[in-house]
Design a binder for these strands. Structure first.
Lengths: 235, 235
DNA sequence: CGTCGCTGTTTTGTATACAATTTATTGACA
DNA sequence: TGTCAATAAATTGTATACAAAACAGCGACG
């Protein structure tokens, strides 16, 4: 399936793997990325021994990583029955996006109030990059750029707790997407929505930012729900 | 300090310790309650060996429990330097309550839309209990009743994710309170605020519920901030 | 033919042992 | 006396071993 050493070096996720990195952190990132990238099917059972072989780590490490992922809702555990990848149905999607809508909207609003001019400039710049990605169909880079966009947003809103709560749900949305076939048209409309948001942020227009953000999240939710419906209809 | 067996049986936290309970879950609850009840000072280092002796569990179990608590933000970890209880300053308080305000307000709003008549009745009943507690100065019981009140609220809003995110911050608020000396007057005003909220919920009045909820959270935040200021001024 | 229960295997839960790193101690030297 | 380095102790990170529970296969029995 995949090997630990390759994986960890191939996809360093935000925090660099400096010399001070502990093995457990690496394993956790490896596992997290594996799930986020859809290497495991929804509901699939995760057998510790297999994951040990996969990652090369021992069970102690692995279990600690699993427990952390469980706390983030990415996997679920049943006593003496191990861990399974959390299954996300339409109802859960609605719940997740309801939460995301509230928090992201709040983040956008606070950003217009609290972000430094430098950060304002940064979102504008990153959005231009995003446009390039969509134009060039560079999906790999697009994902990374989007992460940076939201990173600036969350930093600029000056509230680590919002980020914490949101990253939790965004992880699961990311995982969800990995299980679905995206509608190509969605990228264009998504870009339009994000342009509106970016403009509002740059203008420090609170109400417009809220509105744009909400519209974007709702559209994203509906897109996911549609994809899910399509996926179950034609398997 | 305290013993595991006594602790776990003395304070069963929401999920009962049924026969299907694993030792780890017990230890985790023990530890969680220990922190929430303020048995450890803010910033204090948690030495695994000591916690082992305290709880009677082995390090494997303990570490797993600690990792979970870390994921919930109750404790922090530094590589090779162990865990310490998270310190919460005024800035963090503002962040936490900003998040709580948004989420709790949302929960209240959704409750007015989605709660069953039975649940509506339940909040009303529990609020009466709460009044009794305040009247009788039964602080121990009050805490439990409050938990039940919010439990109904979160259930009635039909969104597990909101509950998940909120319980996270509420835990830390709870911990914070354990470190401070509460203003006795606060209980009365708090009760008034909650009466307004309860009335709004019972009437399924969305806007009033939002307003009452927000007012309550803001007042609670200011009370905490004031207590913190008092505590630092007169040590 | 299907169901139930037994037994062996697999998997998870728990405990312990070893290695790496940090922290405290001690003593020499300026 | 104070600073620094070497060293010893304590603590965390990692790996492995044992125990308990769940699962799977098989045969007896209705």
């Amino acid at each position: 399936m995949f090997k630990s050493s390759q994986e960890t070096k191939a996809d360093p996720p935000s925090e660099a793997f400096g010399p001070n990195t502990t093995l457990r952190a690496q394993v956790q990132n490896t596992l997290r990325n594996a799930i986020l990238n859809g290497r495991f099917k929804a509901g699939q059972k995760l057998i510790e021994r297999e994951l040990c072989e996969l990652t090369g780590a021992s069970r102690s490490i692995l279990r600690e990583a699993l427990i952390n992922l469980e706390a983030n809702g990415l996997i679920e555990r049943q006593s003496y029955r191990g861990f399974r990848v959390t299954q996300i149905g339409p109802r859960k999607v609605k719940e997740i996006f309801e939460l995301r809508a509230t928090l992201e909207t709040l983040a956008a609003e606070l950003f217009t109030e609290r972000a430094s001019d430098q950060e304002i400039q940064a979102v504008a710049d990153v959005f231009i990059e995003l446009e390039e990605c969509v134009r060039d169909f560079d999906l790999e880079r697009m994902r990374a750029v989007k992460v940076r966009y939201y990173d600036i947003l969350f930093t600029g809103c000056r509230n680590v707790e919002i980020r914490r709560a949101l990253e939790n749900v965004i992880d699961r949305i990311h995982y969800l997407r990995s299980q679905l076939i995206a509608d190509p048209d969605r990228r264009k409309t998504s870009l339009i929505e994000m342009r509106r948001l970016t403009t509002a942020l740059v203008n420090r227009d609170q109400l417009a930012a809220r509105a744009a953000c909400l519209a974007h999240v709702v559209a994203a939710r509906d897109a996911v729900l549609k994809q899910m419906a399509d996926a179950t209809e034609t398997p």
